[in-house]
């Protein structure tokens, strides 16, 4: 059997920035007050009055060539099922090398001392459920699945739609895709 490669797709033509995903994540994962594992970015560009805007829900890119996994001195940052990048809280010293190495600044130090970030809700995925953010999105902006399975919804969308990734020049090979 082929190894899964879990990816998330964000449809920038549907996202309205309602932050339901942000709050669902905070509630599902007990994210402490004042912190977030995912967030909304709004880009506006052009020349007035001809402006364009793009709203997108964003989070850890679960890179296939993750700089954080390379930078971690203890092996706390590691690849789990489907290439999902996780932090083993027990092995983390709070040295913050992974935070400095992340091109997307997706990590933070949890008030308890360890480094924390999005897990693609792997605990839910293992039960056959979708990540919390994906289930609550009212505009069906978010799609999650195995890009290595040619019959999956995400594989079909990546074949049929135009997409981009954030800062491909980092060489980190991110697995968060933005449909445009």
């Amino acid at each position: 059997m082929r190894n899964p490669r879990y990816v998330m797709l964000v449809d920038t033509r549907l996202c309205v920035g309602c932050k339901a995903c942000v709050l669902a994540c905070k509630s599902e994962n007990n994210v402490p007050d004042g912190y977030c594992r995912e967030w909304i970015v709004e880009d506006i560009w052009g020349e007035f009055p001809d402006l364009r805007a793009e709203i997108r829900s964003t989070r850890c890119n679960h890179c296939s060539n993750a700089p954080c996994v390379d930078a971690c001195p203890t092996g706390a940052s590691h690849f789990a099922l489907g290439g999902v990048v996780l932090v083993d809280h027990d092995a983390c010293t709070g040295c913050k090398a992974c935070i400095a190495s992340c091109p997307y600044d997706a990590r933070y130090v949890h008030p308890d001392g360890y480094v924390d970030k999005c897990t693609f809700c792997l605990h839910r995925v293992a039960r056959g459920e979708l990540p919390a953010c994906t289930t609550v999105c009212p505009t069906r902006t978010l799609h999650f699945g195995d890009a290595n399975d040619p019959h999956s919804e995400v594989a079909a969308l990546l074949r049929s739609r135009e997409w981009k990734v954030d800062h491909p020049e980092t060489g980190a090979e991110p697995n968060l895709y933005f449909l445009v």
Binding site: G17, K19, V22, G34, Y35, C36, W39, I40, V41, E42, D43, I44, W45, G46, E47, F48, K96, I99, A100, D105, R107, Y108, V109
Partner: peptide
């Protein structure tokens, strides 16, 4: 005439990460 611009606004405000990374002192 105004000049072309690119503005990025984020809702993220994680301690020591935003607005600028400052993790090591």
């Amino acid at each position: 005439m105004t000049s072309p611009f690119h503005e990025s606004v984020t809702t993220r405000l994680n301690h020591a990460i935003d607005p600028a990374l400052h993790i090591w002192g």
